[in-house]
Write a protein that binds this DNA or RNA. Structure first.
Lengths: 121, 121
DNA sequence: GTAAATACATAACTTTCTTATGTATATTTG
DNA sequence: CAAATATACATAAGAAAGTTATGTATTTAC
């Protein structure tokens, strides 16, 4: 499959936790690989989470008490499901709100209101 | 003046060059301090560029051939105006386009279409 | 049975920003 | 007029959050 990934991944910085928290908020519980696939499909292949970013981020949020885990056996493999703690739910709302405010500010700065964007490649 | 800065600055990562390029694209030429003030006023005090981020970024873009400089004396001080090269103009269009695409992807992932956002503080 | 997909994990490195510091002139305010 | 604030540039140490590379192992598809 050809992937039209036109933008550098730098923009993802600072939004990874927001994505994880919001997806868990919507879907109840998910495992790591599932999150990568969900982001890929929801964004039509535009945003691809790397495992090197995802797993450390999940571990960090677990350490901070935003997530809890549940291990489920699949044959001989183990799948690790994550779900939000109450603190995690609060963080999800907070992070999404922050992102919205940030985009609104950027819209003002970049005069982006009626910008139609470029053609997809 | 009280500043309602509710969100962490992490989100700014990856967007600083986009902001600089787009502002220069709109205003022809600007100097560093002017850029910080413009961002502050356009965002109603929400986004505050630090000098430690701004100046190195300007120098880097100049080194990459996206900007050129012109020094102007003000009494005993020197003001350094930056303006876009042709490559810088192209980069401005590209970067803003990337940002729009990124926001569109995030909108899909976060199910943000009809999210009204939280009350301002 | 080989390749690709699924599923986790960590380590070295890079980039980008924050925080702190430094220098200096101009303006405002008490 | 003295002091505080604003204007105007710059750099360096450190933190944070990614990328890239690598490793292990099972399951599915051709």
């Amino acid at each position: 499959m050809y992937i039209c990934s036109m933008y550098s991944k730098e923009l993802l910085k600072g939004t990874l936790q927001t994505i994880i928290l919001q997806l868990l908020s919507e879907h109840g519980k998910m495992y790591g690989y599932e999150i990568t696939q969900k982001v890929k499909s929801l964004s039509d292949g535009e945003l691809l989470l790397t495992e090197g970013a995802l797993y450390p981020s999940l571990h960090k949020m677990e350490a901070k008490g935003l997530l809890t885990t549940e291990k489920v056996a699949l044959g001989k493999r183990v799948r690790k499901y994550y779900h939000l703690t109450p603190a995690g739910e609060a963080a999800a709302v907070q992070k999404v709100s922050e992102f919205s405010a940030f985009v609104e500010s950027m819209r003002k700065i970049l005069s982006l209101d009626e910008n139609p964007g470029l053609e997809p490649c």
